[in-house]
Design a protein around this nucleic acid. Sequence first.
DNA 1: CTATTATGATAGTAAAGCTATCATTTTTGC
DNA 2: GCAAAAATGATAGCTTTACTATCATAATAG
Lengths: 239, 239
Amino acid sequence: MSILAIELSINEKLFLRNPQRTALGRKILRHSVMMIDELGIEQFNFRRLAGRINSTEASVYRYFENKQLLLVYLVNWYWEWMKFRIDMRTTHIGDPREKLKVAISCIVDTAKRDAKITFIDEDVLHRIVVAEGTKAYHNKEVDAQNKDGFFISYKSLCQKIADIILENNPGFPYPRALASNLLEMANNHIYFAEHLPRLTEVNGEGDVLKQVEELLVYFAWKMLFCNNEGRLNGNAGMP
Amino acid sequence: MSILAIELSINEKLFLRNPQRTALGRKILRHSVMMIDELGIEQFNFRRLAGRINSTEASVYRYFENKQLLLVYLVNWYWEWMKFRIDMRTTHIGDPREKLKVAISCIVDTAKRDAKITFIDEDVLHRIVVAEGTKAYHNKEVDAQNKDGFFISYKSLCQKIADIILENNPGFPYPRALASNLLEMANNHIYFAEHLPRLTEVNGEGDVLKQVEELLVYFAWKMLFCNNEGRLNGNAGMP
DNA sequence: CTATTATGATAGTAAAGCTATCATTTTTGC
DNA sequence: GCAAAAATGATAGCTTTACTATCATAATAG
């Protein structure tokens, strides 16, 4: 297996010219990640990016239609990378509970790719996903973009986690909701801990990622390995 | 108690001129809600809004600095309205479990205010919060805005729900995280059911709000009224 | 009924978000 | 190694957005 085999495959409709294949394309990816992290997606634009990489606006527009689609591209990259890591680290594990534990650790953490072949800083991309990720699908084009398969990566990532959830508790009625919730929760609580600390118990001063991982495991365990007293005292919420 | 007593108080730094106090201000609120719902926050702008209400861009700018702050204003309005409804419907309830049930119902639902005195359509505002709400705090100004108290309403809403959670289970270690998660989850799953149905078990065809309410109650009950088998088989996630 | 305040009308500026054209490199296929 | 094709750079321009300023008029409050 060559090292190129782990090149992440991204929906081709997201770009006009494949940015992974050319030096300028990789420069665009690399620096757009850094600039979106610095400026936020609203302040970021192709003119500034072109200036930074000593290229021109027109050249950037030859790769991506606009910054919104570039963001979707980057977020897809992140989802694909997470899927890949979960696969790598869980396929050899038999115990479903351990598998879920490892998956949750992948959700929160961002192992780096081989620095020699990567042109995106995964840690910085992770910060973007935490801060801007949901903007990828919170817009008026979501239905059209969904039809074009822009969110297949997210959905199959979610499905992968849902499958592990079902291995742990085959009767659990909300595997996909729990999976998507774990994914969203991870980003939210990292963000809250830093910016809106009263919305979480995760403490921004300590090791945030470790605490978020503990939080997710606590929630998932409660949901899945639980003899629910609630069923007895009042049937509310127990279908 | 006069009917004016339930006028919702919104942070004064969010506007230049109080839009609740003038006919034009109320027109701005009313129609911006409708237009943001129709166009999304990205396509919405003050020029279009001014055209729609037969006023001018300059006049709108006399009320709000920009559309981002207008969005924060509207979202604050929604949070304040939800807080008010939770108070109204839970203060007289003794049973904590029933209290939580009612709070969850308030989180998902959007009872209308008296049509005579309201100038915002709460159902439409609810759709905005579902689709655009998190953009109110996902931006580079979040820390500065948080210092100015723009998110006090959200935080105190979250605290109110966390208090009800603690009434139900005083030893629960993550009351604020669960509270914020219930709030975020409600919006997410309403949105997913409509646009990205593979991310949830909530079925977009049926009564979405009822299903989301059931989902939240199921999750909350599991978290709070649970004898956790997980503590015994493997200590993962049980601090 | 005048003094203040709110609105309208109009204009203008800087930046964002593109698109087009053509010259110049760089790459590819033979 | 060379011709054809493709990618990039340089430049220009256009439309829209996001504001700000000014002044006249309308509404209102004391």
